[in-house]
Design a protein around this nucleic acid. Structure first.
Lengths: 353, 353
DNA sequence: GTGAAAGCGCTAACAG
DNA sequence: CTGTTAGCGCTTTCAC
């Protein structure tokens, strides 16, 4: 398979290489006649532009780097990621960008990969699929003034001019807490993800705010954080159900974690929603398949990815432009894990005080 | 951020560019002294090799293309994929390869992307994350004699010399069927995935074989295929449970589908495993979180990815070598969705004959 | 409208 | 051991 270059096409079409190049980029300064001629030659010889040569001459790779979180963590297997990637990839494909995927088993590995991507000019821009406090990757990208967008939001206040796509996680958590309060729940537990993640912080603040607005003091016993998705959910339930006064409702950071929570609850023969209400976040594909199907907040994962790609490419094309911040709307998906607190249940939980 | 090139380094270290190049590749023909000198200069100037220039000069990109299945399909969100990718990425990282991710919303788009990857010399080799009958992508790669490996196996007999990593899906399905037979089940349904997928075919044949070995004729009413994961599982249950003689056990192609199956069963108040036994394939992360936790076949997804990358890179490095075929061992994970058929259950199902 | 030539940043053959 | 030189395949001034 001798590779056919622009020169071969030029020779076949009896024009100069530069002309062929112009035809490829569909320059208006070339006559229709020669365009035809050249295109025919390309067809016949089976010509395809060499990407690396192009990137080198152009100083542009037409590919965007996608940085996943630490793959050692089980979070990595969250169906959240295929879905964001689907969103990213749709937009990228429309604008003819490719995807370079970066994963790493540790913070250090991820950081190294990112450095290689930017220093080696492997990508034109980067999307961070996670956002956590004090992230050296984000800091680095920012210092280098390299185009990037983050899904979530920067935590550090000094990173003002960072483009990001996020949900209003504060509001979502607040609403969800209010919803449980309206259903008569007073003992509402909060099971958060890793406290380093900005989303966890935002969730917690929304939860706090709702309680305070209702004139209640957050009870620290009811607030637990867990890094690991399934195990975390299960451990959280053990802790919470060992309390003298058990919660009658729980807010869980992630649908997958909710599976763990429900699994443990069913082992303890605590029934959802009769004995306890649960409300979760994300609405990944399988979340409607829990037994019973979980009530959760749809955060529109696909759009997060799609818009992140959109904003990134915009930024690549207009390096001067100001940072954009975008909020994707969320939506409460009422299913079957929440119900008005029963008087018996209230009595039971109060008895144990 | 003026980009610093090999020439700058050469000037600073007072050597020729080629010497710098040799230092980068740690050539043994360079004295330790000049290596030191050059490395210092690189450090000071903050030099990082330009990837595209390297690829162009080298005719090698050090990146491998990963082709996902059709993203329009919900299968795309199966946690299977993050997990294979984790395997691939681990090996790739060890050997300093990068990952270029290709997704497409249709067969056509995928095919186009693959063509771009190979013709544009964007990657050194490709891993196909799916395997189906009459796949034009596989055919193309084979014709082009481009290095690739597939996860699963080629269906077409003419594609003899294709390197792949697979499970013994025939055997796994056979074993699983035998297991159910030993538990006393006679009416064993089979819920397969898309019949185009080679894995589905292999599963079905294993199932057939086990039944035949036991002197039983497969009943076509008990065999259904569904493309979509969750909906598929649910529809399959409806079909199966509408039969005059209901199955007492089901073999389900994929854990996610099993979630759909169990969800529908619970809606119908059919209890697992008391009323019906279920056994599934894959053992993705969340599969232990179903209620009750599902019995499934662990296919070692991570290893599939890891070995696929391994074999691919081997193939890239030794283009002449023969195709390798590798089987990853599987393992039955007994959990709580299978039980010996109860006499009452047998009576009930026989009554309905 | 089209061609000639220089150059993107790196590697590799050939000298010495 | 190290330098010189000629590309890798494409783009892009600058001429004409």
């Amino acid at each position: 398979m001798m590779t056919v270059t622009i020169k071969d096409v030029a020779r076949a079409a009896k024009v100069a290489p530069s002309t062929v190049s112009r035809v490829i980029s569909d320059s208006p300064r070339i006559s229709e006649r020669t365009k035809e001629k050249v295109r025919e030659a390309m067809q016949e010889l089976g010509y395809h532009p060499n990407f690396n040569a192009r990137s080198l001459a152009n100083q542009s790779t037409k590919t965007i780097g996608v940085v996943m979180p630490n793959s050692a963590n089980k979070t990595f297997q969250n169906p959240f990621f295929p879905e964001v990637i689907r969103g990213i990839s749709t937009k990228a494909h429309q604008l003819e960008y490719g995807l370079y995927l970066s994963t790493g088993q540790s913070e250090e590995e991820i950081f190294e990969e990112v450095q290689h991507m930017v220093q080696g000019k492997r990508v034109d821009g980067i999307i961070l699929l996670y956002s956590k406090a004090d992230d050296q990757v984000m800091k680095y990208l920012h210092e280098q003034d390299f185009p990037f967008t983050v899904i979530g939001r920067p935590y550090d206040e000094t990173l003002q001019n960072v483009t990001y796509v996020n949900n209003d996680n504060f509001k979502a958590a607040k609403t969800v807490t209010e919803y449980l309060l309206l259903l008569g729940h007073k003992r509402i537990a909060f099971i958060g993800g890793n406290l380093e993640n900005v989303v966890t912080i935002d969730h917690m603040e929304g939860y706090h705010r709702a309680l305070k607005n209702a004139g209640m003091e957050p009870n620290n016993d009811f607030i637990v954080f867990h890094e690991e998705l399934q195990e975390g959910g299960q451990e959280a339930v053990i802790d919470l159900m060992s309390l003298n006064e058990r919660p009658t409702a729980m807010i869980v950071a992630d649908d997958i974690m909710t599976f763990g929570v429900m699994r443990m609850l069913s082992e303890m023969e605590i029934h959802v929603p009769d004995d306890i209400s649960i409300i979760s976040f994300n609405n990944v594909m399988i979340s409607e398949l829990s037994a019973p199907p979980m009530t959760t907040v749809d955060i529109n994962i696909y759009s997060l990815g799609y818009e992140a790609a959109n904003l990134l490419i915009d930024k690549i094309l207009h390096p001067g432009a100001e940072a954009k911040k975008m909020l994707i709307p969320h939506k409460l998906m009422k299913r079957e894990t929440c119900r008005r607190i029963a008087s018996a249940q209230r009595a039971a939980s109060e008895k144990s005080v």
